[in-house]
């Protein structure tokens, strides 16, 4: 049986792992290569690296970090941050990444998803969506690491992105991110029901029961960062808990 996945996320800034709450207040959480190796040994199912300062001149630094990670670990990993062209993706895949995640650039140029998926295959294109619930009750897409609001509904964008060739959705609720109060169940469920590809829930995972709730429900995978970095929850303990609650994990 296909298992549900636990995915530690490493936000990278200037080659170090950082994690803030609600997308600000960055704290240093260590060397990404060492953290990645630790997570792989502890039984993480995949890893996600998001370069939150990716700019043109820094992309080479990211590629060399990806190369170091790929030499070291034997589980799949996704890299995101500032990707906006076929060439960007090629460099990262050539450095050893298995998948890339795209966000703002895809929203501004939706054709990018078509181009990337036909060049590299849907299986390595993850569409990351940052979303926030507005007063009207609907969830809207945010760009640029959550700093820029749009008028596009999250569900509509997810459906379009998958139709254009995204192979997976990484859905981050900005309302839940950093709160450790649980994942955004309703919007994750709504997205998961609307698209035929796997959905990774992100934002709000603070305790094993939060993971059990979202994975017993709509999510195919759950992503979290600081609770793993700061050893608030260990991956083996989390998996034991999930197994006890009849969730199939590796």
């Amino acid at each position: 049986m296909l298992t549900k996945r636990i995915i530690p996320c490493l936000d990278i800034k200037d080659g170090r792992t950082v994690k803030g709450t609600n997308f600000v207040d960055l704290r240093d959480a260590g060397d990404p290569v060492e953290l990645a190796a630790r997570y792989a040994e502890e039984g993480a199912d995949e890893l996600v690296f998001l370069d939150i300062t990716a700019t043109n001149e820094k992309r080479k630094t990211l590629a060399s970090l990806v190369d170091k990670i790929a030499h070291r670990i034997n589980i799949p990993f996704t890299v995101g941050g500032g990707i906006s062209s076929i060439e960007d993706v090629r460099i990262l895949l050539d450095s050893g990444a298995d998948k890339v995640s795209i966000n703002t650039s895809a929203f501004k140029d939706p054709e990018l998803i078509n181009r990337l998926s036909s060049e590299f295959g849907s299986q390595c294109i993850v569409l990351a969506i940052d979303t926030k619930q507005h007063a009207d009750g609907a969830w809207y897409v945010y760009l640029n690491g959550g700093r820029v609001a749009t008028e596009r509904k999250c569900i509509d964008w997810a459906i379009e992105g998958v139709a254009r060739g995204a192979g997976e959705i990484l859905l981050t609720s900005m309302d839940h991110d950093g709160t450790k109060a649980g994942f955004a169940k309703a919007i994750t469920e709504a997205v998961s029901k609307s698209v035929p590809v796997p959905v990774i829930a992100s934002g709000g995972g603070g305790a094993p029961e939060h993971f059990a709730e979202i994975l017993n429900g709509p999510a195919d995978a759950a992503l979290a960062a600081s609770i793993f970095h700061f050893r608030e929850i260990s991956i083996p303990d989390l998996k034991s808990y999930l197994r006890l609650h009849s969730i199939c994990v590796r």
Partner: peptide, 29 residues
């Protein structure tokens, strides 16, 4: 969901390729 993405078990293992590999081991698909 399609594609299948993630870890699934392999069983009824035959041939030397699976020497010492336990039944129902997890592999990434």
């Amino acid at each position: 969901k399609v594609p299948q993405i993630g870890w699934n078990t392999i069983y009824d293992l035959k041939t030397d390729l699976f020497d010492r590999v336990q039944e129902n081991s997890f592999c990434y698909f």
